[in-house]
């Protein structure tokens, strides 16, 4: 791992374990994520990469019987403490899910929902501005600018996913977590989203879970390989894909396991 001064890490996790009841899903993950980079998490199904990403905005709190231990520092503050305000945390750490899940409301209301509940805007003009800006950043503005009142569900799958990205960035987060954002999309929509992720990393720290190794290779600067709840290897993406240190990583990326 390259030597970096501490403050350049946006997210630092130290010995993070996750238990679902009696079953341990993550065994002591230590992973440091840098600002304004794309970090991808790869590994076979059930390896714990989604579980890990959901620790970063405390989404696992919603799951009955799930216990997260260890420290997760974001901007040097441990978010895994009971006194953390989860609402405020989730506004800072946006999330995009595997299946596009716009609210069954209009396109405008989908994007405006976050700013509204957090009281980020003072008036209608302000809100309009935030909605427009978010849709532009998500690359959706041109397609929907004339039908903001249409239902978010009337959009195609790829457009819905970009709407979800617009919704996530409308509350102005620092970090974007993406849990297999393209797995439900066709290759063309995937290409659009990937291009978007590339642009978004200028502003946000992005952590992406993906099943597609090509996607990890194309998009990310850092890659972590997970296997059965353990992080096997974490390095620059180029190193992982050309010269992995660990045998298991090599087997996975060459298609022998997974």
């Amino acid at each position: 791992m390259p030597d970096m001064p501490d403050e350049n890490y946006k997210i630092k996790t130290n010995d993070v374990t996750v238990d679902y009841g009696d079953k341990r899903a993550l065994h002591g993950i230590n992973l440091n994520i840098q600002s304004n980079q794309v970090t991808s998490l790869i590994g076979p199904s059930g390896c714990g990469k989604s579980t890990f990403i959901r620790c970063l905005n405390r989404m696992n709190d919603l799951i009955m019987g799930c216990h997260v231990n260890g420290s997760i520092l974001i901007d040097n503050t441990d978010i895994n403490l009971p006194e953390t305000d989860i609402v405020e945390l989730r506004a800072r750490i946006g999330m995009v899910f595997q299946k596009p899940n716009p609210f069954p409301k209009s396109i405008y209301d989908n994007v405006a929902y976050g700013p509204r509940i957090h009281g980020l805007t003072k008036n209608k003009d302000d809100l309009d501005h935030v909605v427009t800006k978010s849709l532009k950043r998500a690359g959706l503005w041109k397609e929907v600018s004339d039908r903001l009142d249409a239902s978010g569900l009337s959009l195609s799958g790829g457009q819905q996913q970009r709407l979800c990205i617009a919704r996530a960035i409308a509350v102005n987060p620092d970090v974007l977590l993406m849990d297999e954002p393209c797995s439900a999309l066709d290759p063309i929509a995937t290409a659009v989203i990937e291009e978007l992720i590339n642009e978004l990393k200028e502003r946000y720290t992005i952590v992406i879970v993906t099943h597609s190794m090509q996607q990890a290779a194309r998009l990310s600067q850092k890659t972590a390989y997970f296997h059965l709840g353990e992080m096997i290897e974490f390095d620059d993406t180029s190193t992982i894909f050309t010269n992995p240190k660990h045998e298991m990583t090599e087997s996975y990326i060459t298609g022998k396991i997974g």
């Binding site: 905005n57 989404m59 919603l62 609402v87 405020e88 945390l89 989730r90 506004a91 946006g94 999330m95 995009v96 899910f97 299946k99 899940n101 716009p102 609210f103 069954p104 929902y113 976050g114 509940i117 957090h118 979800c164 919704r167 996530a168 409308a170 509350v171």
Partner: peptide, 27 residues
């Protein structure tokens, strides 16, 4: 009500009451 709606609302930082009164109960 599909859990994806709840996740979406929690994901943008809605509190539990907001998730219930804005999304789950209306649906």
């Amino acid at each position: 009500i599909p859990p994806s709606i709840r996740e979406a609302a929690y994901g943008v930082g809605a509190s539990q009451m907001q998730v219930i009164t804005h999304h789950v109960v209306p649906l």
